[in-house]
């Protein structure tokens, strides 16, 4: 698996798209800092970008890479390597090269603006951890969709729909149901609904850092416990890890049965 990971990674870090992605983040980082001069504020703006764009880019990259490397995958499958290694190797190749672009692309501008001397360093770190998680999750989800759909156009559409659903529509439905069922106790529902969407989950992790003052204004005891103690961070991190583990496990499972 490591050998396949190595070559997929080599391939990807040299691709034009990795550079585009890297440049995009460098640009965002510098532009934000140039406009704000304020690290904390730039971190908040960045959060909005990361939570939405990282999943989109992970999804598109994942699905494109899978479809484009189909024949190469066949070549690999004819080699004496385990099937699991082929797919997980490719998956990690994509996910890691994307994460690397993110880390370098955002890290450089912020470090050059004196991140380490600023108190925003923890928030920024959390942001990068989140971005990496989201990359791992959405690349894995894209691989899943691609493995199920032989038809590229279908697969691509499903992937984009999935992103649109999790990034926007889900929250719309969530908000509507909260407003409609406002008379009922909704603490548990809200927390569970948040856990079921990785984008919401990483948004909450950032909220816990940036907006704790507002979150603690809510009266519910369960919210209080969730937001007021370390429970929230620990639980969110655990579920995010699950969000990586489950799709990856499914890639493994699918890879054992799939025909080429």
């Amino acid at each position: 698996m490591l050998k396949i990971l190595k070559y997929s990674f080599f391939d990807l870090v040299r691709s034009r798209w990795s550079y585009v992605y890297l440049l995009f983040y460098l640009l965002i980082g510098y532009v934000l800092l140039f406009l704000n001069h304020d690290l904390s504020k730039a971190v908040i703006t960045l959060m909005n970008i990361i939570v939405i764009l990282v999943p989109l880019i992970g999804t598109i990259f994942g699905i494109m890479y899978y479809y484009n490397s189909r024949e190469f995958t066949e070549l690999l499958l004819a080699q004496p390597v385990k099937r699991m290694s082929v797919f997980l190797g490719q998956y990690l190749g994509v996910a890691l090269s994307l994460s690397l672009s993110l880390l370098i692309g955002l890290g450089l501008p912020f470090i050059s603006y004196g991140l380490f001397q600023s108190d925003a360093v923890w928030e920024f770190g959390l942001l990068l951890v989140n971005g990496t998680f989201l990359t791992l999750i959405f690349t894995a989800l894209a691989f899943n969709i691609a493995m199920i759909n032989e038809n590229r156009i279908k697969g691509f559409s499903y992937a984009i729909l999935m992103w649109l659903f999790l990034a926007v529509i889900y929250d719309g439905i969530f908000l509507m149901s909260l407003v409609v069922f406002g008379e009922y106790p909704l603490d548990n529902f809200s927390i569970i609904a948040t856990m079921l969407n990785p984008i919401d989950l990483s948004r909450i992790l950032i909220l816990l850092k940036l907006d704790i003052s507002a979150l603690l204004g809510y009266t519910g005891a369960i919210f209080q416990k969730f937001f007021g103690t370390h429970t929230g961070v620990l639980l969110s991190m655990t579920i995010l890890t699950l969000w990586v583990a489950l799709p990856v496990y499914n890639i493994y499972r699918k890879s054992l049965k799939k025909d080429f």
Binding site: V168, D171, V179, T194, R203, A214, L215, G217, T219
Partner: peptide
């Protein structure tokens, strides 16, 4: 009106 919705703070949908 619905305090629980605070959990959707900074969501893209809310921004929209």
């Amino acid at each position: 009106n619905t305090p629980e919705t605070i959990i959707l703070l900074r969501s893209l949908f809310v921004d929209i």
